[in-house]
Computed example of a mutant assay.
Amino acid sequence: MTELGLRARKKLQTRQQIVEAAAALFAERGFDDVTVAEIARAANVSEKTVFNYFGTKEDLIFSGMDDFSAALLQAIRERPRGVSPFAAFGEFVVQPRGLLAAEDPDAIERLAAVARIIDDSTTLQTRQRQLFDANTDRLATLLAEEAGATDADIAAWVVANGLIGVLRAMQKYIHRAVLAGRRGPDLISDVLAQGERAVEVLEHGLADYTVGH
């Protein structure tokens, strides 16, 4: 048991070492101008080791999205009986995750650094859109299965697209905010509250949005 624990810690340490080396290089020179070989040298590992931990160079930025997607689908799939997908999604959205949940005071600065790296790379922006699209497809498939429909069911895709759209909007909002210099717990509360409000708009109908304005 002790040996397995030591091995797991060593793997985690190596992974973090690679991430930190990549982040420093990306922040200094931009994502597109840094090679995996350079990242490996900076992290004092082989290029093969980098790819053992990360399938692509883009995964050095977005690897956490797979875990996030899996957690989201699990929250919806395993929600209590009688709870709607909207409610399960809404509960998921209002929980701080990743760097938003980190107690480290430098977490927001790391988030700002990532936002700048993505903002300066069309390659990363394209990959980000692909990942959100893939998450939409996975959620649509799950919703269609629960409704007894096929993967081609338009309603399931529309609902999934709306819910994933909330996540896209929240991500865009927080990135713009940190790049503009906003910091502090109020920022996190703000983005989570806006996400909750967006889910309510979807759940109760789009027709009432802006009515009376």
Rank of each mutant, 00 (worst) to 15 (best):
N44Q: 08
E38N: 00
Q16H: 15
A177C: 08
A180Q: 11
V159C: 11
L143N: 06
G148Q: 01
M1C: 13
R127S: 11
A102C: 03
N161C: 03
V201Y: 14
Q128I: 01
E3C: 04
V114Q: 08
I39S: 00
N44H: 09
F54I: 04
R81P: 12
D190C: 07
V36C: 01
W157S: 12
R168F: 02
G55N: 11
S189G: 15
D33E: 05
L131S: 02
N135P: 05
Q128C: 02
R110Q: 11
E78F: 10
A156C: 01
L72N: 13
D208E: 15
M1W: 10
R168G: 09
V36A: 05
S63D: 13
V93L: 04
A42S: 03
R127K: 10
L167W: 08
G184K: 04
V211D: 10
G98Q: 06
D66N: 13
A193L: 13
R168Y: 09
H213N: 14
L192T: 09
V166I: 15
F51L: 01
H213M: 15
E145H: 08
D133I: 03
D137M: 07
T136R: 14
A70F: 04
A140D: 00
S84M: 04
T150P: 02
G148R: 00
Q130P: 01
E196A: 15
D104Y: 01
L163E: 10
F31A: 01
G165N: 07
I174R: 10
I188F: 06
T35A: 03
D153N: 06
E196H: 15
F54A: 06
G90P: 14
R127N: 04
L206C: 04
V114D: 13
Q130G: 09
G30V: 00
R79C: 09
S121M: 01
A37L: 09
